[in-house]
Design a protein around this nucleic acid. Sequence first.
RNA 1: GCCGGCGUAGCUCAGUGGUAGAGCAACGGUUUCGUAAACCGUAGGCCGAGGGUUCGAAUCCCCCCGCCGGCUCCA
Length: 629
Amino acid sequence: MRTLGLQLDDRRMADDPFDLEPELEAGVPAVAAPGEVDEAEWLQRMRHSAAHVLAQVVLEMFPEGKIAIGPPIDTGFYYDFDLPRPLTPEDLSQIQKRMRKEMGRNHRFVWEEISVDEARDRFADQPFKQELIDQFSLDSDRLGICTHAAFTDLCRGGHVESTRQIGPFRLTSVAGAYWRGDERRPQLQRVYGALFATKEELDAHFQRIEEAQRRDHRRLGRELDLFAFDELVGAGVPLLLPDGAIVRQEMERLIRELQEARGYREVWTGHLARGELFRRSGHLENYSDVMYPAMREHDEHRNGSEDDEDGEAYFLKPMNCPLHMTLYNHSLHSYRELPLRYAEYTTLYRYEKSGQLSGLTRVRSLTQDDCHIFITPDQITDEVARVLELVQTLFTTYGMPNFRYELSLPGEGGKYVDDPQAWSIAVTALRDALDKAGIDYVEQQGEAAFYGPKADLFVSDVMGREWQLSTIQLDLIQPARLGCVYVADNGERRTPVVIHRAIHGSFERFMGILIEHYAGAFPLWLAPTQARCIPIADRHQEWADEVARELREAGLRVDVDDGNERMQAKIRNGQRRKIPYLLVIGDREVEARSAAVRVRNGEDLGAMPLDQIREMLTQLKASRANEPA
RNA sequence: GCCGGCGUAGCUCAGUGGUAGAGCAACGGUUUCGUAAACCGUAGGCCGAGGGUUCGAAUCCCCCCGCCGGCUCCA
């Protein structure tokens, strides 16, 4: 079997896989007959049961293997193993075959409760199970086990009656996964399987994956000549081709317009700064692992001591905040000037670990639509509301309604700045602003930045992976560390609160998401080529050129396909290029000073006078309508 | 960073130790056509980089780089 190596939505498990309560809720049978539980529960049970069969077969093939956990997930199941050697794709198909055979043998699942001591005994040679027993025995002196064939697993139940009731499945991939999700602990081999109630649903699942692959921005970026990566340039450094650069420019144009209208002022701070700046801001201390290493001055100019190396060195900036705060400090500000909004669109450099890189969505050179807003503490709620309005406006413009917010709060531990009162004010203000805007969000403990709480907006890519785009962060510490002050109405000097915020997040990541959102078919205002003239024969060339010229004069991006292919081929090419409008020009159109308008979706609007076409396209462009679909 | 897979023409992919291939794209010519592929021809490669084994390496081994999936991380 060929490994598909793809999972949709794996991460979104219904339950914590380690929350293996030894007993099910009252009335829910550990082993259920068909019809005894609802469809969704039955599916979960088939998946969970399949995981047990997987473990059975793997242990038969590797008797010295150690088993960890094997929960159901959104698309099937997985099981984690510690085995003497890595599993190959051939092993996977072998395992799959044996699983099917075992299922055909119709083993019954038998669930029972045993004492902790008995459990320790039964799983004597299973260290991971021993650890789970340690955990569960804190809450209960009885533990569940489930047996089918000659295989017994520590298990809270949730099975079908017998292995023949397990639905159609396919093993999809094997991947490394740390025990208990902790990278300091052993890395296990995780075998993933897809399982659905029917063969049709299983096929539909793989169909969905194929469709997802077709709109993957990495693939579309190549097909549409939007961007490229090159080994010689370096991993994680996206290169925009002319068409990709147009999309990027339109995104920048949009956010500049929106921000200028909301009182933002654009600044520019370049790409480098001395280590001393990042030391004072706290970045070197907290984030040196994602900063590129120091760039030293040439030896003959160096005068720093060994202790002071970082302070004397230069660093590529990983964020703009210290620079914006430095700019702020170039004059003394009155409370009357606040909020003061510094916007910047320059590239940041972060050393993302190689395994984290992913197309445009995770890169090492990224360009934020970044801004730092200096405010007084009592302006927090209002200003956050203004930022939320901006976010809503942007996502509405792109026609992207499917996002979710997360409110990230401090957790336990020393990572956070110790000022409980400031945290409390900031968290309350942020929560209020979200509530007032009527935004749904989930609160996440321990996800805050070291300097303050934040509200982040997440969107899923076509493969089901979630990416953070917009972020609104309250900063309670950096302004003080960098000596920012404003003069209050009583003449006192006070430290401003700073809101760090990015709306697109990074243009790179957002472009990746956008490409997938539109499946490469950008609305007119974003489309690299907005219309293409297609002369049917050479004698139509002149009028086609004229149409293109006039539309370009109206500010539209229009080209002419003057190749010697047949019209049908030109239409096909234009369509594959996902150009919003194709303007077909033959004898009739030359005669009538018109063009036949074909929309990207195949719709034929018929011949329209040039003036009307220009009017329609400029209108669409100006309104940034999400058209044509 | 870790585990696994992969790297051959611009793209998609054949080629498992003995002279590097196909389709599409590109380019040249012919064709001048009414809404998703006209025809003929030409060119295109340090088989990701380096090292090794061998009479001989795209093919086997080592190391590096990159890509893909997952894990972990993400100011």
